[in-house]
Design a protein around this nucleic acid. Sequence first.
DNA 1: AGTGTCACG
DNA 2: ACGTACGTGACACTG
Length: 870
Amino acid sequence: MTNIKKLLLIDGSSIAYRAFFALYTQIDRFISPSGLHNNAIYAFHTMLRNVLATEQPTHVLVAFDAGKTTFRTEMYADYKGGRAKTPDEFREQLPFIKEMLAAQGIKQYELANFEADDIIGTLATLAENGDFDAITVVSGDRDLTQLTTEKTTVAITIKGVAELEIYTPAYLLEKLGLTTAQFIDLKALMGDKSDNIPGVTKIGEKTGIKLLLEYGSLQGIYDNIEQMKVSKMKENLINDREQAFLSKELATIDLTSPIAIGLEDTIYTGVDYDKLKKFYQEMGFNKFLEELEGATEKVVEAINFTVVEETVTDDMFDENQFFYLEILGEDYHRDSIIGFAWGDETGIYVSKNIALLKSFNFPKNTYDFKKNKVLLARHAIAYPVVEFDTMLAKYLYSTIENNKISTIAGLFGLDLPDDDVIYGKGVKRAVPFDEILFDHLARKIDVLVKTKAPLTDKLRENDQEKLLSDMELPLANVLAKMEIAGIKVSGGVLSEIGIENEKVIENLTAEIYELAGEVFNINSPKQLGVILFEKMGLPIIKKTKTGYSTAVDVLEQLAPQAPIVDKILKFRQISKIQSTYVTGLLGEIMADGKIHTRYIQDLTQTGRLSSVNPNLQNIPVRLAEGRKIRKAFIPENASSVLLSSDYSQIELRVLAHISGDEHLISAFNNGADIHTSTAMRVFGIEKAEDVTPNDRRNAKAVNFGVVYGISDFGLSNNLGISRKAAKNYIDTYFERYPDIKNYMGNTIREAKDKGFVETLYHRRRNLPDINARNYSVRSFAERTAINSPIQGSAADILKVAMINLDKNLTAGGFKTKMLLQVHDEIVLDVPDDELVAVKKLVKTTMEDAISLDVPLLVDENSGKTWYEAK
DNA sequence: AGTGTCACG
DNA sequence: ACGTACGTGACACTG
């Protein structure tokens, strides 16, 4: 038996600091019973547990920085100068982190005049040269990557401290194209702002890597500096020569620091139970405490309920009860009811006898009303609209988490096992024994009953009560009717398209194999990448994190260079249609000849719906080949047609309204073509007829960009123009539409202040990342702050329109049925003799859904198939 | 289960 | 210097 020796070295100072900021937004939630902040302690602890579990080290040491002055400050007084003062809330946690480490049985070490890096480097080197099999270094500081060797892997924390990016020499080479030694030289060239290492003026990561790849090393660069052609960069290199070598020294970790401990001192002995228990109690880490004491001992309080088998009596009913229906999966169009429960504070009832539901006094509180309504409709049982729905209420309150009952329980301090635990998941999912099923259902009712009041309070605080009662609940009822109705799809039409596609795919496949000179899987991006970029030597335009990108924009650029590329593009296009829309949709046609989608009403961050099983919100329309799929979508009877009614430019109209921009508003009020109008203002064109199609196209992209939270990079990518030109467009746009610029600034400011943004109907999106220190995380939150009120208000408006339309159709006694919703479009099945009246009704109902400072405009098309109704 | 790709608004 | 357009779902491939 061989004893594997694994050393784990943790950069305690850097991890603690990262840990603090990882949970900084939650700092007010992480307070120990004695009132101490413990967010950093908690995150450090989580990271440590994960690493110990995955690495299973035999030796562990956590190194800390000893103080402000080190041998580096002697060399360079400004080293780590200009750093922000560490927050008090952080400093007070450090001693407790050390206490926690001691309780975990982990050795700690610090050394005057040296940094944690140097201690780690020295011990790692000792272990390398000794008989250790593997060394893992964990830090939040990318500099430690320089310790990477075949035996030593360096794990750098990302996304707070929850995830680790693992550096091996191979990974470093792949990621940056550099060796470990070159990595230090890169630091010397580019410097490091956070450590105040100067580097060479104007040289960043890109230029640094380029130079190192050309000259091999820092020394190599300066050995060849004379031959370099005259440039600003060369001048900077010459001027900053001394600084560069100083930077290199500063960046280099000392592998021979005079540590007073040895590897034998780092043996991991495991936790000290008593100390750790005391520590968890002190910190209020109850979950870990329970775990430590043995999770199995956790006492689960029993819950009282009555099993109802044959007869329900009147005393079991009250309209203020909750009702809950259970199925094993998600697909309520196909899955069977496995049980149900109802009740309130005074009593809970459970049953499996569906016959009981035939004459049932359904109460006014539900969880997922739409699911209940559709499931019951399959048993010819009606469920009248209710007053409260926990799933929808929770979704309105917060979109951050999912809206499962177990999640809601946790949110309000209750405990409910997840369905996956009770029913199992994947192939193991099954209906449990009655005792377990009934107990679980009763607990769900218990949670629903107990969380209604706090949820209602939240909605009242957020001014969202009407959003639930007047929007989401009535909408759930309308959506249920649409899902139950389904849309008729001709399997014959799909099959015909499928046969044609098969022929095309077969021919393309043969041609692609011929051009490639071998047979391979065209659908595999990996194999395709090898053919295109290795065998055929085409230029690599973009990389993904796993290899070469073969996405459309890349292939379109490569098309002129090799005839195979166009064939691949065509193959992709037709394959997509075939697999997703021909084969896929054929498999979704149910016994009634219809497709019944499910709209997910509690998922999107903006308030839109989504559609699954199948998704009927992404049926092809943009390209002719795919658009043909719409020929298979037909009305229920020969005597009706499909009517498609869609809002014209609803998002830009919403933007005009909420920004109050006079130019945008007057353009819409004058009925102008909005993209042409934008082109005229931004490009200074006097007459609309002088706007070229290209001008309009560019203006359209800018308008889209504004709605998405524009950036010059994004726009340049979209239009295929330079970043500078894109920036120019944006600057001019903001100059000519100052109110839009103000709207963006104000929205972001308000979001930073309040932590959320709202739609016209008070639908809320919380933005926990809006004040993040990480630039791209923060920027993303800022763009969503701009986009969400626009996209969300547009979604709200269509929801209102659908509710009103449903009411108006019923009131008018029409047989017309709403079938589909596609974000700004409603598709209806209209009997021929109702078409004229219904067209008018739909248009006015949609246009009058809300009164804005600009008119809403609806376009309508009808026909014998969805293809013709566009 | 995660990734890449591509369909829609 | 960094690294980015907003919101979704389905399919195929790959560990």
